[in-house]
Design a protein around this nucleic acid. Sequence first.
DNA 1: TATGAATGAGTGTTCATTCAT
DNA 2: TATGAATGAACACTCATTCAT
Lengths: 232, 232, 232, 232
Amino acid sequence: MPSQPATALGGAPAQERALRPQGRKTMQRLLDAGRTVFESQGFHAARVDDIVKTAKTSHGTFYLYFANKEDLFTALAYDAMAQMEMLGASLGPITPDEVGRNALRTWVADFVDIYAAHGTVIRAWTDREFASRDLGQRAQASLMALSGALSRRIDEARKVGATSAEIEGVACLSMLERFNYFQQSHQIDFDHDAAIDVLTRAVFEGFFMPSKPSPAVRRARIRRGAGSSTPA
Amino acid sequence: MPSQPATALGGAPAQERALRPQGRKTMQRLLDAGRTVFESQGFHAARVDDIVKTAKTSHGTFYLYFANKEDLFTALAYDAMAQMEMLGASLGPITPDEVGRNALRTWVADFVDIYAAHGTVIRAWTDREFASRDLGQRAQASLMALSGALSRRIDEARKVGATSAEIEGVACLSMLERFNYFQQSHQIDFDHDAAIDVLTRAVFEGFFMPSKPSPAVRRARIRRGAGSSTPA
Amino acid sequence: MPSQPATALGGAPAQERALRPQGRKTMQRLLDAGRTVFESQGFHAARVDDIVKTAKTSHGTFYLYFANKEDLFTALAYDAMAQMEMLGASLGPITPDEVGRNALRTWVADFVDIYAAHGTVIRAWTDREFASRDLGQRAQASLMALSGALSRRIDEARKVGATSAEIEGVACLSMLERFNYFQQSHQIDFDHDAAIDVLTRAVFEGFFMPSKPSPAVRRARIRRGAGSSTPA
Amino acid sequence: MPSQPATALGGAPAQERALRPQGRKTMQRLLDAGRTVFESQGFHAARVDDIVKTAKTSHGTFYLYFANKEDLFTALAYDAMAQMEMLGASLGPITPDEVGRNALRTWVADFVDIYAAHGTVIRAWTDREFASRDLGQRAQASLMALSGALSRRIDEARKVGATSAEIEGVACLSMLERFNYFQQSHQIDFDHDAAIDVLTRAVFEGFFMPSKPSPAVRRARIRRGAGSSTPA
DNA sequence: TATGAATGAGTGTTCATTCAT
DNA sequence: TATGAATGAACACTCATTCAT
């Protein structure tokens, strides 16, 4: 469940033409430059001029491959969405034991990797600005695919019912997304593995384990020889 | 732990002058208009022209009270920050029992209310764009104050050590912030109370309760008459 | 039936605002500048920059009063159309005698004056480029209003039937329009009065007088004491 | 007196080289494509890209045969000019009788045919834009050749004097040119033969017949047994 | 001879900010 | 204190023309 961007699809103008090796290379340079520039400036502040300079090419060439700035962004975004959806599909059942915890940790680590590669784009597409446009719609669908995958596994593990599971899926995804955003934007700077450990634990305990009775309650139950519990 | 923007500080130009009642009123109209417009358009897409029209005043007047667009935004932001910091201060100890859970629920509900009132601003100030500027610095400080408060209470409850607690505080805040963002931007639309229940549960179980042994382990322990937990 | 532009209406953005005297003046400067520049460069070659410099104002100001280059052009065009339509309305019956000929001459002279004032715009709006747009539609309507007026008077004078009259109206207008265009574009340079005389004569003899029998025929007829004739 | 572009001269780059059959074919494809595209878009709106696509060839190839867009246009224009000049030469004396009228009708029909084939080009070259350049000069010369031919025949028929004849020639040509333009640009859509009839009549009566006395005058003259006419 | 790719000067337009009244 | 008008730097995008293969 790895990460490298691999397969950005390219913008509308380019799709209409057959690309020769040279063209393909230029387009890739532009995509890479776009990623770099969007990363450091954000979508708005990014100037086509910056992208073009980074890609060591010209303005005209840019518009040979992409209809406009948003088109390049969209190309990068679709890549990220594909990764997101694959990530969702790759989430297996999380059992409430060490096996489940380990599986979850691996999955969380994948999330962190993908976010490292596509975070810029992911952050931007949730902007109010894109909400109306096609991109925003598809982006949301991608996110919902991911939270949906989480919801299903949560419900599987704890039988909380569809509605509750849905909310929990979003809450879980929220934590993962935002934490990585803070990390990536260097507003915080935690150790990579420690962060994964914490996230894993929080997700595991917060979403995949049945609710624990509070200690006092537990003590009483043990005395009586009781089992487990599941409140809302 | 409510919300109304009690104390907007006003832009530089205004601060240098003593405001008479009429001026005060105009300024308030501009602040309100700013909130409205930033809310519906976001900081970038918001035009000074929109704000001015909404406030039923003129461009010239705008710059009588605020040094520039960002200055008005900053005024709104400082309001939100104050609320955030107060919210942090209001978080008491969360004990691992029903009392703690209820206290937490109340606090989460406060968070939701404050986010409803200041979300737009909160969302925007985490933008990469502001990172460098003064506003960004202070905004981050506010956020860290909040996550710091969480960290302290988490460490208090589970003794996980400073570093781990810090990470957990951020993770917890991430979940709260992003979930509310999704909710507010209408990308999702869950029932208000159900959402608070879920968030409370996730925070409580995920951060304030000691780790549970997985069922199998637990059974063994119970037989032996064993006690506590296994942190990350 | 005179000419001076008098009343250009101004573009969309300006119509939405109440204009104070100063604004009104600036707008008029822009309209005048537009006329001047379109005159010497044509619509395409005309640069907004040229107009703005001619009007001694700034780019920003231009877009305060007009949505874009075409909008300014349209404002000028509507003025010209109004003149055209008024000219059409002012064409009285042309009797096949000296009275009619004199009335026609006056009218032709009016046409020449109006063309001198609005020719640039008139020329441009028949461009294929505008055909599709709203402007083109309205422009054509104006032209047709004028040729329609001619048609009616022609039919009145010679009873040629609606279809034929319609064609003749267009033919007549064609001659007037194009002749003046050549004159104005300095591709030719004839004496003003001589030109009016020729045009008047051609229109009068070509469209408003009953067909003459050729001399040979006429001689025969006179001998027999005959009257007039009307072939196709 | 028909039309096909017999002798397109070819652009500068091509003129310097001897063209082999394949090259000749490619060049013809480009000329045809140019005509088509200029026809539907006009000179300005026509994109080299459109021409190239229509000709199913490439940008590079275009500039192998033509120095630039105007060069291709010029090639087409010279063709049209040749036709115009031939048309002028083909205008025989127009006698003020049925014979003359019939000869004129044939000639007008030729004009209509030629305009149908070359109208786009003819329209464009009168644009202010070309006025200065070489093309504009030569185009005007062509037009003047045609109007000159008309002038001579008019003077021949009515002895109006050189100056007046010159003006009349231009007026006559104006009518023919513009009427056909309106027709071709689909701003009007008259029956082909009816249009030719009307044009013929207008030209014949308006330019080639001696002025008719108005009915009243005529009646008086006939009584006295009088003869001819009274020019402007 | 042919082609797809590259170029970059040129243009229309926006909008935060300043000015004059 | 208020306002409409003015400004111009900044930016996205186009397209005729040239280049490398």
